[in-house]
Amino acid sequence: MKLANWQTDKQFLNSANCSKDEANIATLIESYGKDMDSKYLINQNIRNSSISSSVIKRIRMYSGVFVTTAFVFFATSITTPLQAETPEEKGLAIAIEADKRNEGFVDTTATMRMVLRNRAGRESLREMRSMVLEVTGDGDKSLTIFDEPRDVKGTASLTFSHATEPDDQWLYLPALKRVKRISSKNKSGPFMGSEFAFEDIASQEVDKYTYKHLKDDTLNGRDVFVVESYPAYKNSGYTRLISWIDKTEYYPLKTEFYDRKNSLLKTLKFSEYNQYLSKYWRAHRMDMENHQTGKSTTLSWADFKFQNGLKSSDFNSKSLKRFR
């Protein structure tokens, strides 16, 4: 079964009032739960029954395309938590709230500039333009057009993201006029040789992780939630991520990435947040430091524009040649 069916069947799930009723959920498992991913979701659902209907619903991007610690559920129609909230429930609730606050951006365009630094301090430059289309009932569609380095100028990548199923991904090679479907399995590989892995810059969906609230704390004078998250998709390079989430605005200030051996691999710091349309917060600067190699990458965002009237025909693998 495809995960997308969960969204298309959203009304059915709502009417089943499953958030209160584990028996209903069990019925759902019977009717839907052949698939491992779905079972996983449903199990999680049962565990977090106080907020389960939101778990069934799905999940949007947090910050444009490219924020690691994105927490992306929408719809938190919640029942009364009679029992004490477990750390897992609280972690998930934070993710859901963060997603809710990013709902309805429709589409976004922005420019990206990456400065890569190796241990010796040598720098190289990447420049890209990003377009994202919010998709109701599935992961978002995103398009990245490369401007620097110049030998890849005009190259474009198109991604249809999905929560736990593999993303669909195409690459347009302008010299050959060739559109290539490529494997999206390589989650942990470096994006353009930077310290950002593909999974760090991919469209983030709440379903992609499970969560656990560790503690409340302060960071740089801000009250934060400290939340641990565990990738639920295959082929991640991480065992866990720890994120410091602003308590007021629900955006991340810092994330630590732990590798497959559970050693600290990278730290990402978010800064220069601006708010758009009185709702959507976007970090304009992201600093990723690799503690194991000594390399670092600074990703700067600019020219955020929302609700540009982008259409799904702009995100067609055949129309990649239109972009410059």
Binding site: S183, K185, N186, S188, G189, P190, N235, G237
Partner: peptide, 12 residues
């Protein structure tokens, strides 16, 4: 067929 991240490096 692709082997991604061979021998814990970035190479494919």
């Amino acid at each position: 067929y692709s082997f991604f991240g061979i021998k814990d490096t970035d190479a494919d």
